[in-house]
Structures are given as C-alpha cells and as structure tokens.
C-alpha cells in the first residue's frame, strides 16, 4: 500500500486533454517508489518520470492567514520570504513560495498559535 502525500495538476501544453501532474509519496525504500511509478504507467498515461530532490527543482506556494502583531510582519526574515496579500485589523494574509523546506521553516518561525488558516498547493517539480 502507498499513500499520495501531495498532488498538483496543470495543463502545461496547449494540447487539449493533456495534464501534467506532480505527485509525491512518503516512502524511504527507493525500490518501492520505483515499483509504484511502474504501476502508474497505463494506456492513459503518456510518461512517468521519477524526480529526486538532488536533480530537480521542487516548489510550492502557501497562502497563510495569521493573527499576529503588525511589527512581526515587518521583521527582516518575514519581509525577505513573504509577500503580503492583505491585512485587516489583527489579521494578515501572506503568501510564501519556494521549496517545501522554506515554507516549513516559515511556519515554524511564525508559530502554530498564530496561524488561523493555511492553503498550500503541494509540490510542483521539474528536472534540472
């Protein structure tokens, strides 16, 4: 059994009916990953590529609603990695984009207690 961790879908080419998906699994055993990838090959699928973190770019976007002091939103770390989408009284909505690690680091830095809501795309990736 395996479990899909994240899944993103887009229409990368101007060919009707063709989608590109980036799917991530949590699995330490590379042979199992390879086997699952082979199982995805079906008449419906054009091609499946196995991307590893060293040889591909992995990116995602998160939109985060925070209940936080305005002063903290202005601190250099926050300014460096986020973009403010909107503010209302004590609520700030931010966008943070980049690697999964960067988004996780941002969320850790902010602290769970300040996060009201998160929308996160999951990973999209491309070979280097």
């Amino acid at each position: 059994m395996y479990n899909v961790d994240t899944l993103t879908v887009c229409r990368p080419l101007r060919i009707p009916g063709v989608s590109r998906m980036t799917i991530t699994l949590r699995e330490n055993d590379q042979a199992r990953v390879d086997q699952v990838v082979r199982r995805w090959c079906s008449p419906e699928v054009i091609s499946v590529k196995n991307l590893d973190t060293d040889h591909s770019y992995w990116r995602e976007v998160a939109i985060v609603k925070l209940e936080i002091d305005a002063s903290r939103v202005g601190d250099p770390f926050m300014v460096a990695i986020t973009e403010i989408l909107g503010t209302k009284v004590t609520i700030t909505i931010l966008q943070v984009a980049g690697s999964t690690r960067r988004i996780d680091a941002f969320l850790d830095e902010v602290g769970q207690e300040h996060i009201v809501e998160i929308a996160r795309t999951g990973v999209t990736a491309m070979e280097k």
């Binding site: 042979a31 390879d34 086997q35 082979r38 199982r39 090959c41």
Partner: peptide, 10 residues
C-alpha cells in the same frame, strides 16, 4: 507487465 516486477518479491 513491468509493474509486477519487484511488487511482491525482490
């Protein structure tokens, strides 16, 4: 069927 290889037995 390639997807049977390594499925149950290595």
């Amino acid at each position: 069927d390639a997807s049977e290889i390594d499925k149950n037995v290595r």
